[in-house]
Design a protein around this nucleic acid. Structure first.
Lengths: 271, 271
DNA sequence: CGATGTGGTCCACGATATGGACCGCAGCAT
DNA sequence: ATGCTGCGGTCCATATCGTGGACCACATCG
């Protein structure tokens, strides 16, 4: 199979994405080394290249790595095409206020769902299972499941197959059959439920956001401890989420007509 | 001089930034080759790496290159640290409505100013000199000059020196002395004026935006044909801009206290 | 139906990235 | 003080990897 060379570029971009997933907290060299599978000199050398280009910055004192200004500029320039956060921000804040629990926007990125923003709830007991930058395979977690359930059946199968290895390795509570069942339930209920399958007692409810072509591109979700997402409140929150998702979809439909691309490329195999 | 290796990474990141500067329009391979100074096979190979990582997408039909989803995700993750667009968006829209001319947010990126968003004016005769993604050396253009004038004198000299080569080569109407004079005028007036120095008859007025530490990080600006920016209207627009800049600064001060970094690294020499 | 301008690919050559070994430092329990 | 551990960072001989001139395929145009 021909990958077209440029391996060090692949590694550098992987590192960049990794630094992004640690944004806020900052990433230590050692953790980047571990998570990327690179060795230290290589990781360091690539980070220097990323720093040189302004995509990453290093805190002089703590030596931790953060995303740099160029990353922000790039994202802002990409916003017209993908601007989910821009349009979902209001809704997330509103959801968090209304429910007192933490609210999230996630976006689909190929085979996974990435959390773009977490709006802290006011209720004193909170779950911190999901934080900005975290990602899970499609189907794992409330928002992630909502996205998956909104895809055409054929695509769901393709995604599950491509994710099979990761699921088996890191998500023991999520065998493919389970996810298929969850998808069916999500479609029946109108909202996705995660009954603490990633972190025990940390439940979530999610609803997908579709682009003007009807493709699921992201999700809104709420997370709380199990006792706050039982009985009627679950469906109430599902309805709230659905209402806000519709608002986001309307904003997307208004502004983006010019920019949106017909097809964002199918999921590819795992490396 | 030791650059720490990883040259192909530098080139790839340069290409990525370049694709970003063409966002919206999309970038043709040939123009990327020309603007980057790379040769075709190399550029193509690096682009394939960028596509593989999701930072760039290629339109199947037109073969043009666009920023990909990962670029957007990355930028969203960097937003808490650099979120200027997020907070300036409202102001730009308002400015454009009030003045009927096109309004812009730009952000400082080392030695240059990059236009993050252009809000189209309603007035029938418009200038298209500045578009989203365009960048100019600090001091060249209204917003860019506003940023420069808001820096400490020592930093201004450092920036001018570092930019000397580019200015001499590509901005014949901007000798360093001229920029120094413009800075003085900007500080006296309270707003920066570009009297058609980049594109003839395309004038602009700009005001800097400062972060909570007082450092100039970006600018708001208005552009129009010369006849619409003469006499009293010039200062009126200057005042409007200053008012909106203050609003943005307040939003930044509120939200960002936790995130903002003390020092964003001094300008480095041109390559 | 040649001429020109795209986008894209091949492959021999040699410049380039690699990673095991190493350094210096900070914290901490002897 | 003294050794230990874990951290961030760097060196440099080795061989792997990227390079770019030459080339192909396909449109468009006069």
């Amino acid at each position: 199979m021909d990958f077209g060379g440029a391996q060090s570029v692949d590694r550098a971009l992987g590192l960049l994405a990794l630094v992004g997933r640690h944004a806020g907290r900052g990433a230590a060299l050692s953790s980047l080394v571990e998570e990327s599978g690179l060795n230290k000199p290589t990781a360091r050398r690539l980070l220097l290249a990323l720093i040189r280009a302004g995509f990453v910055e290093q805190d002089e004192a703590t030596r931790r790595y953060y995303l740099g200004a160029e990353s922000y500029v790039l994202g802002s320039l990409a916003a017209p095409r993908y601007g989910l956060l821009q349009f979902a921000m209001d809704s997330v804040v509103r959801l968090s206020r209304q429910t007192q629990d933490s609210a999230f926007v996630s976006v689909r990125r190929d085979l996974v769902s990435v959390c773009l923003h977490r709006e802290e709830g006011t209720y004193p007991v909170r779950t911190h299972a999901l934080q900005t930058g975290f990602e899970h395979p499609l189907g794992c977690g409330a928002g992630s499941l909502a996205i998956l359930a909104a895809l055409p059946d054929a695509e769901i199968e393709a995604v599950l197959e491509a994710n099979a290895a990761v699921l088996a390795a890191s998500y023991p509570l999520y065998p493919p059959e389970r996810i298929r069942a969850d998808v069916a339930e999500t479609r029946a209920q109108g909202y996705a439920l995660n009954p603490g399958l990633i972190v025990a007692n940390s439940w979530g409810v999610g609803v997908a956001i579709r682009d003007p072509f009807g493709r699921a591109i992201g999700a809104l979700s709420i997370a709380a401890i199990d006792s706050r997402l039982q009985g009627p409140r679950q469906a109430e929150i599902g309805a709230l989420l659905a209402a806000e998702a519709t608002r986001v979809e309307q904003k997307l439909a208004q502004r983006q007509s010019v920019y949106f691309t017909p097809v964002p490329e199918a999921g590819r195999k795992t490396a």
